[in-house]
Amino acid sequence: MEGGFGARIVFTLPGGIPVTETVTTTWIIMAVLIGCSYVFTRNFKKIPKGMQNFIEVLVNGIYNFTEQTMGQDKIGFAPYIGTIIIYIGFSNLSGLFGFRPPTADVNTTLGLSMITFFMIHGFGMKKKGVGTYLKGFTEPFWIMTPLNVIGELATPISLAFRLFGNIVGGTIIMGLLYGALAAFSTKLGITIPILQAAIPVPLHLYFDVFAGLLQSFIFTILTMVSVSMAMD
């Protein structure tokens, strides 16, 4: 296990800034998402057919989901919610294609949860006014203020570590399994690690597809709940 399970440094920018696998995989995901949005949203027809049907179902689903969770008056958050659910979903699924998922790096998840943190407080202040908002911290008694502040600071950390821990745990278990299968193949006297072919499939299904999609859903729904609670 040389170097542990941290993100590999792919190249170093002039000036000594290391560019890790996380960043390059994020670039690939960004390129795929931008390419898909460009290709699939060109020449929309009045009567949808083919891919347009799928896109309409997806966008409608995200709008309905936002409306159900946050309420009719906060439907304007739907584009952001859609963006993060698609981005985190693609990031978690990128493990299927042999990449290291960008969400298996605490920098990515903490960045995403800081966006949520600033959204909670920014929109809370905008909706209620700064004075009323800050007064909310002293409820129900003024003595509860430190606890309330710590509770607010814990939200982004728990969001970030939930996503990070789930994905990195899956990555480590998959790494250990691949290593063990390779070692076992060598023991059997086969130079090609043939055992790696089909055995990891159920674990990929669980850790990448099920846990990955579930965690992207959890992250977005917790973001929505926190933001709409701060605004109500």
Partner: peptide, 22 residues
């Protein structure tokens, strides 16, 4: 699923402590 994911958080904290130690 939402409740299960929130309940999972403490376990994940333990996992992160273990990963940091290792």
């Amino acid at each position: 699923l939402l409740g299960a994911a929130v309940a999972e958080t403490t376990g994940i904290y333990g996992l992160i402590i273990a990963l940091i130690l290792l």
